[in-house]
């Protein structure tokens, strides 16, 4: 199976509560909180599509879309 390639981080700003869990536990430090304490995906080229951010988010606010 080919490695999944990142298409997009889908972020739901209305649901994100800025807890920082996805940001701090991302193994590649792809994510950051912006000045409104909402998550944003910055270093897209580093994302390995492990989906840990999506799996750990307590608020269902971040999803990874991949292309094969």
């Amino acid at each position: 199976m080919a490695k999944p390639k990142l298409k997009k981080h889908h972020i739901n700003r209305d649901w994100c509560k800025g807890c920082g869990i996805c940001v701090e536990l991302c193994p590649k430090k792809v994510l950051e909180l912006d000045d409104q304490d909402k998550v944003s995906a910055l270093r897209l080229q580093d994302c390995i599509c492990c989906r840990l951010c999506e799996f750990r988010c307590p608020d269902f606010a971040i999803e990874i879309e991949t292309k094969e």
Partner: peptide
């Protein structure tokens, strides 16, 4: 019913 009422970072959402 979202966003849910749990506090930011509450483990229950996880």
């Amino acid at each position: 019913f979202f966003p849910h009422l749990w506090c930011p970072g509450c483990g229950h959402g996880m």
